[in-house]
Amino acid sequence: MGAEAQKEKINNQSKNISMDTSKLSNPTVKAAFEAWQAGDSKLWLSFFTADAQLLDDGHPRNFQNFSTKAIGHERFTSVDIVKDSGRSIFGHFHSDTWGNFKTYFKFHLDANSKIYKLEIGQAEY
């Protein structure tokens, strides 16, 4: 099997990994995370305010663009650390574009449990 065929086999297997979300204690974050993992952009977006902000390694990005282009092509392959009452997730991540790396998603919720800001970036732990 050539390198490209092996890479495709690994990528297809990683898409089928069953994720243990029991560590995710915040119900909104857990539901949003599960929508992300399932590649369901409509459901994912339903957990966010209309003017949700995205910071990628501290730099502002277009949240809507990120949500519609990355979802289905990027996913966690493990949940390693959960902090901030279940609002911050650290784990291994796969991107069809950027490969595999450690990342974090930090969710900020308003009084109505809607996510108004998402911070993402590469993690070191």
Rank of each mutant, 00 (worst) to 15 (best):
M1W: 08
M1A: 06
M1V: 01
M1Y: 00
G2S: 11
Q6L: 05
Q6D: 05
K7P: 02
K7M: 07
E8I: 14
E8P: 00
K9E: 08
K9Y: 00
I10E: 11
N11T: 03
Q13G: 08
Q13A: 14
K15G: 02
N16W: 05
M19P: 10
D20S: 09
T21A: 14
S22F: 09
K23R: 13
P27H: 02
V29T: 14
A31C: 02
A32T: 06
F33T: 15
A38D: 07
A38S: 13
S41Y: 14
K42N: 14
K42F: 05
W44H: 13
L45M: 06
S46W: 09
T49I: 04
T49F: 09
T49K: 13
A52T: 11
Q53H: 07
L55A: 12
L55C: 03
D56F: 12
D56G: 09
D56S: 12
D56I: 06
D56V: 01
D57F: 12
D57A: 00
P60C: 07
P60H: 08
P60Q: 05
R61D: 13
R61Q: 14
N62H: 04
F63A: 03
F63L: 09
Q64M: 09
Q64L: 10
F66C: 01
S67H: 12
T68Y: 06
T68I: 09
K69C: 03
I71G: 11
G72I: 05
G72S: 13
H73M: 05
E74F: 02
F76A: 13
S78Q: 07
V79S: 14
V79D: 13
D80P: 03
V82N: 07
V82L: 02
R87C: 08
R87A: 02
I89D: 11
F90P: 08
G91S: 11
G91I: 10
H92M: 09
F93P: 15
S95T: 03
D96H: 10
D96N: 09
W98G: 05
N100A: 13
F101D: 04
K102S: 15
Y104K: 01
Y104A: 10
L109E: 14
N112F: 12
N112R: 15
S113N: 15
K114V: 04
I115A: 08
Y116I: 10
K117W: 07
L118N: 01
E119A: 08
Y125A: 02
Y125R: 06
Y125E: 06
